[in-house]
């Protein structure tokens, strides 16, 4: 989780990722942020995000992102 927060804060330092729950739907993360974020997540956590995973449910908050990462890691 800490590593994820580092990535997020580096990407958009002005956003408070610990409280924000409307990141994707609210347009706080735009499409370029998303591409960059997905690339970083894939590299850092050695998972492979697919198109199916790109969803507001998975990206609206840091917690949601972390749950998704843990799920993908356990699925191997």
């Amino acid at each position: 989780m800490k590593e994820l927060m580092v990535i997020l804060n580096e990407l958009r330092p002005e956003v408070d990722f610990s409280t924000e729950t409307n990141l994707l739907d609210g347009g706080i993360l735009d499409s370029f942020d998303m591409v960059s974020l997905i690339g970083d997540i894939n590299d850092t956590f050695e998972v492979e995000l697919t198109f199916d995973d790109i969803d507001a449910d998975n990206f609206n908050s840091a917690e949601a992102m972390w749950s998704m990462i843990e799920r993908l890691k356990s699925e191997g």
């Binding site: 499409s31 998303m34 591409v35 997905i38 690339g39 995000l49 697919t50 198109f51 790109i54």
Partner: peptide
């Protein structure tokens, strides 16, 4: 176009290679 074309393309194998 963003949700159904841009995202799938940007995480596709070709895009990753390009990256």
């Amino acid at each position: 176009f963003r949700d159904y074309l841009f995202y799938p393309l940007s995480i596709s194998k070709a895009a990753v290679k390009f990256g």
